[in-house]
Amino acid sequence: MRIDLHSHSTCSDGHLSPAELVARAVEKGVNVLALTDHDTVDGIALAQAAIDADALPLHLLSGVEISCTWDAIEVHVVGLQVDTQSPALLALLESQSQARTARGVEIGHRLEKNKLPGCYEGAVALANGGMLTRSHFAHYLVEQKHCKTMQNAFDRYLSRGARAYVPHHWASIEEVVTAIHAAGGVAVLAHPGRYKLSTKWLKRLLVLFKEAGGDAIEVSLCQQSPHERSTLGQYCRDYGFMASVGSDFHTPLPWVELGKNLWLPKDVTPVWHVFSAFPDVPQGEEL
């Protein structure tokens, strides 16, 4: 059984449409996939329609990845098996969308001051109706040959301390967990090892997430050291979290792929054990 509970489509900053994403998931042998676009659930119905139309052997979980501001740090919380029509969730996502638009406009202004006009319009065009993210600005800067790579674009213009960086003003972790629970979902702290936090600060985040009602943390990603995976598994046991797995797939890459290298350490509780109408999954290292 191959499970991937973190992926993105063109409804946010992924490169594949929802239909292309589910087709690739099946091609890669994924049995259960969660579509978790940034601050939007618009792709869920499209993905399910593609599954139904082609009778794909894939179980889709409705999900979303919501940005939060914690002590001036951006962290992400994934909601799994959410009701995509939940008024509380949709209200929060609308607020997030407005914050993303305002931030995008300001990023455009700052890039224009750096003699790079038209970046906001270019990024919006690349988003093509999806949720606008800094990745769209980075793509545009590379496309226009202002930067050589996406990382170069972030380093020069879009990351904290760079020329066009704009601080984020997202919802709090407490607000996000509350909205996910109101939608009947499970709240998962995404990729805890990517926030570049010291052990002391990561433990502070885990304590706050637990106090906010958080249910699980992502333990397994495609690219991580065995030490990180085992450490996150231990944090699940120490703080009483369930464990999740996710590629955080955006585009096909040699080192990041749907369902690739996603297994859990022993003696953790997989997050899918609380899902209803979920395929039977063996517990242990190999899914």
Rank of each mutant, 00 (worst) to 15 (best):
A182Y: 09
A182L: 00
A182W: 00
A183Q: 02
G185D: 02
G185I: 08
V186C: 09
A187E: 06
A187T: 13
V188P: 11
A190K: 11
A190T: 05
A190V: 02
A190H: 03
H191C: 10
P192C: 13
P192N: 13
G193A: 00
G193V: 00
R194D: 10
K196I: 08
L197K: 04
T199G: 07
T199I: 15
T199N: 13
K200Y: 15
W201P: 03
L202R: 12
K203C: 13
K203R: 15
K203Y: 13
K203W: 03
L206R: 04
V207I: 15
F209T: 00
F209S: 00
K210Q: 12
E211D: 15
A212M: 11
A212K: 15
A212E: 06
G213M: 08
G213E: 03
G214L: 06
D215R: 14
D215S: 10
D215A: 12
A216V: 03
A216T: 06
E218D: 05
E218S: 09
V219D: 01
V219F: 13
V219Y: 09
V219Q: 07
S220A: 15
S220D: 07
L221N: 12
L221F: 15
Q224A: 10
S225R: 06
P226V: 13
E228M: 14
E228D: 12
S230G: 06
L232F: 15
G233R: 05
G233V: 10
Q234H: 10
Y235D: 05
C236K: 07
C236Y: 15
D238S: 03
F241L: 00
M242I: 12
M242E: 05
A243V: 10
S244C: 10
S244I: 07
G246P: 07
D248M: 10
F249R: 01
F249T: 04
F249D: 01
F249S: 01
P252Q: 07
P252E: 10
L253Y: 12
P254S: 03
P254E: 02
V256F: 07
V256W: 08
L258W: 14
G259R: 04
G259M: 04
K260P: 02
L262Y: 15
L262P: 00
W263R: 14
W263Y: 15
L264R: 05
P265W: 01
P265V: 02
K266D: 11
V268G: 04
V268A: 00
V268H: 05
T269K: 08
T269M: 11
V271F: 01
